[in-house]
Design a protein around this nucleic acid. Structure first.
Length: 360
DNA sequence: AATTCGGGGAC
DNA sequence: GTCCCAGAATT
């Protein structure tokens, strides 16, 4: 038996006895497949699963989602990260709903034209929902193929992407694309993990990396840039159940999410006066009469940046909404929690601070 | 071709 | 601390 056929057969065999019970595997509805795939981009199954359930409950079908507001979608997306996925989700729902008569295109090539659907997701939907014979390549697939076939090409280079995609396509068994794709990813997620237990691996006999002790070196990936430090000073201006809020609209992290009035500085500030002074200019506020309390400090570590956050509680009457400028507005705390999407760091702060606010 | 977009979990 | 996750869009 050729090595490639053996590999395919073993992977599928392993999958049938080890696969997890996941809701999007029990359907061929392109809407549900699409939704699950967008949620699962760069996201572990365990983290994405509750979001998938909540989205389906809120928007049972494509039209429901297409009729939603971006605020609703982002609120449901809150805490999942990569919020452009949520915005693109809504955009594509509207697009398919109005321009494609509510039907998703049925080939990977056409699916990839839609916003938020790239090479992986297009092939996943085409294969799972429409049985197209196309192979998917995600982080799991890179890892499994690099090890089993001993490939040292960098997986984040264009040459690597091409090479692994071609290999996956060559391995794909016609007639069984969907199951093979699922199997290969599941194998990477459960068995051929970043630090695997090779003793229990059914592919021990054919894996080049295991044979030559290269498992810990594969796959090869070029190093990432060092993180940059940012310093966010938030004005937590609380008064009788209301706080000041603004929407992030610029092209940056947390786009279109809401936050307290922000003063970003190049370095950490111990002195509230400089924060207040900058805020007055930035937002055209009059903060002179205010008392500024000691800040709550957090460090928010992300993939490409470390955000040093100081939330400065302030005491004093909130001006009426009509007199607020620069996109600042006052909002009731319950209203905020119900409707306004915020970064998790703000959500956690609010949960922490709420008991103290109501008891005061 | 390189960078940017989050948050959480494993180690 | 580092690396990775059912990647895609933008520069």
């Amino acid at each position: 038996m050729p090595i490639n056929s053996l590999f395919t057969a073993q992977i599928i065999d392993w999958y049938r006895s080890n696969k997890r019970d996941l809701p999007w595997r029990e359907t061929q509805d392109p809407y549900k497949i699409w939704l699950s795939e967008i949620i699962l981009q760069q996201t572990r199954v365990e983290q994405g699963l509750p979001y998938y359930e909540r989205f389906l409950k809120a928007f049972p079908n494509l039209r429901d989602l297409a009729n939603a507001s971006e605020e609703q979608v982002l609120k449901l997306w809150q805490g999942l990260g990569y919020y452009s996925r949520g915005r693109n989700l809504l955009q594509t729902a509207k697009q398919v709903s109005t321009h494609f008569n509510g039907k998703f295109p049925e080939t990977a090539e056409k699916l990839q034209q839609l916003t938020g659907i790239g090479p992986y997701t297009a092939r996943a939907i085409a294969s799972f929902a429409f049985n197209e014979e196309v192979a998917v390549v995600d982080g799991n697939v890179y890892r499994v193929l690099a090890r089993v076939f001993g490939i040292f090409t960098e997986i984040n280079s264009s040459a690597g992407k091409r090479e692994f995609q071609e290999l996956a396509d060559a391995l794909l068994p016609p007639e069984n694309a969907s199951e093979f794709n699922q199997a290969l990813m599941e194998f990477g997620a459960l068995q051929c993990t970043p630090r695997p237990d090779c003793h229990s691996c059914p592919l021990l006999g054919i894996c080049i990396a295991a044979d030559r002790d290269l498992v810990s070196q594969l796959p090869v990936k070029s190093k990432s840039k060092p993180k940059r430090d940012r310093h966010f000073n938030y004005l937590f201006y609380y008064d009788s159940g209301k706080i000041l809020l603004r929407k992030r609209t610029h092209k940056d992290i947390w786009k279109n999410l809401y936050e307290f009035p922000l003063v970003e500085q190049v370095r950490a500030t111990e002195d509230p006066c400089s924060v207040v002074a900058e805020a007055e200019v930035l937002y055209d506020l009059d903060l002179k009469a205010l008392e500024v309390l000691d800040p709550h400090a957090y460090k928010h570590i992300l993939s490409h940046q470390i955000i040093h956050i100081r939330i400065w509680p302030m005491r004093g009457p909130i001006p009426p909404n009509e007199s607020l400028k620069s996109g600042i507005f006052a909002i009731n705390l319950e209203e905020l929690e119900k409707q306004y999407p915020v970064p998790v760091i703000l959500h956690r702060f609010l949960e922490h601070i709420k008991p103290y606010l109501v008891s005061k």
